[in-house]
Amino acid sequence: MNCPTDEPCFASFPPAVLRPAELTAFSRGGGARTIPLVTRAVGAEVFLTGQTLFEGGAGIALHTHNCPESVTILEGDAIVEIDGTEHRVTRFDTTYVPAGTPHRFRNASATEPMRILWIYASVDATRTLVETGVTARVDAEHARAAAEPRD
């Protein structure tokens, strides 16, 4: 992105109020659903945000990103694995994971829901599954979400 030196790079991002309850959620598989929030679709040029909701016992596969990621627990308790070490985290605990570091989240409860807020440090964020090596753009998942029926 090229920004004039006298203007901030985020100058073209229009103000927005995003309400997760009114946005499309899509399945990540295994009992996890994602709601994209700040995305290219609303004008993001620098970062991406969204929420992922985990049913009791749900988790996501071990993966890496091509940029740093921060996650805050909004609801419930989770186990986060970062580079082979597991940590128990709870409401408002926040993680920082550097680019290329394997990590995953799973709901620590078998019955109660868990919700996270994620922030990627790039609108060009990708996710690579450790098990398969398959890489996909995160915003490609957002496009898929728009095409799926709302939960």
Results as ranks from 00 to 15, higher is better:
residue 101 T to L: 09
residue 21 A to M: 01
residue 24 T to R: 15
residue 85 T to I: 10
residue 12 S to I: 07
residue 139 D to E: 14
residue 52 T to R: 12
residue 58 A to Y: 00
residue 134 V to M: 14
residue 53 L to G: 02
residue 96 Y to T: 14
residue 125 A to K: 14
residue 99 A to V: 12
residue 47 F to Q: 13
residue 36 P to W: 09
residue 142 H to C: 08
residue 150 R to C: 02
residue 104 R to I: 00
residue 21 A to N: 11
residue 111 T to Y: 01
residue 129 L to G: 09
residue 14 P to S: 10
residue 107 N to P: 08
residue 61 A to W: 03
residue 41 A to Y: 03
residue 7 E to W: 07
residue 139 D to L: 04
residue 143 A to E: 07
residue 23 L to F: 05
residue 121 A to C: 10
residue 104 R to P: 05
residue 17 V to K: 07
residue 86 E to Q: 09
residue 88 R to A: 11
residue 55 E to Y: 01
residue 57 G to P: 03
residue 41 A to C: 00
residue 114 M to Y: 09
residue 5 T to V: 01
residue 91 R to T: 11
residue 146 A to W: 05
residue 66 N to D: 12
residue 67 C to T: 09
residue 39 T to D: 02
residue 21 A to I: 08
residue 66 N to R: 06
residue 50 G to I: 07
residue 74 L to A: 11
residue 113 P to Y: 07
residue 20 P to L: 01
residue 113 P to D: 02
residue 34 T to D: 06
residue 30 G to S: 02
residue 19 R to I: 13
residue 113 P to M: 06
residue 47 F to V: 14
residue 119 I to M: 15
residue 73 I to S: 05
residue 149 P to H: 02
residue 117 L to N: 13
residue 95 T to W: 05
residue 80 V to R: 04
residue 114 M to H: 03
residue 28 R to C: 04
residue 44 A to E: 07
residue 17 V to Q: 11
residue 84 G to Y: 08
residue 70 S to I: 04
residue 144 R to C: 00
residue 63 H to A: 11
residue 54 F to Y: 14
residue 20 P to I: 08
residue 84 G to H: 06
residue 104 R to D: 03
residue 140 A to R: 03
residue 66 N to G: 07
residue 45 E to I: 15
residue 108 A to H: 10
residue 53 L to A: 14
residue 86 E to V: 03
residue 113 P to V: 07
residue 13 F to A: 12
residue 119 I to T: 13
residue 102 P to A: 05
residue 106 R to E: 01
residue 105 F to H: 10
residue 66 N to M: 05
residue 96 Y to G: 08
residue 114 M to C: 13
residue 78 A to F: 09
residue 1 M to D: 00
residue 121 A to E: 15
residue 84 G to M: 08
residue 19 R to P: 12
residue 135 T to E: 13
residue 87 H to Q: 11
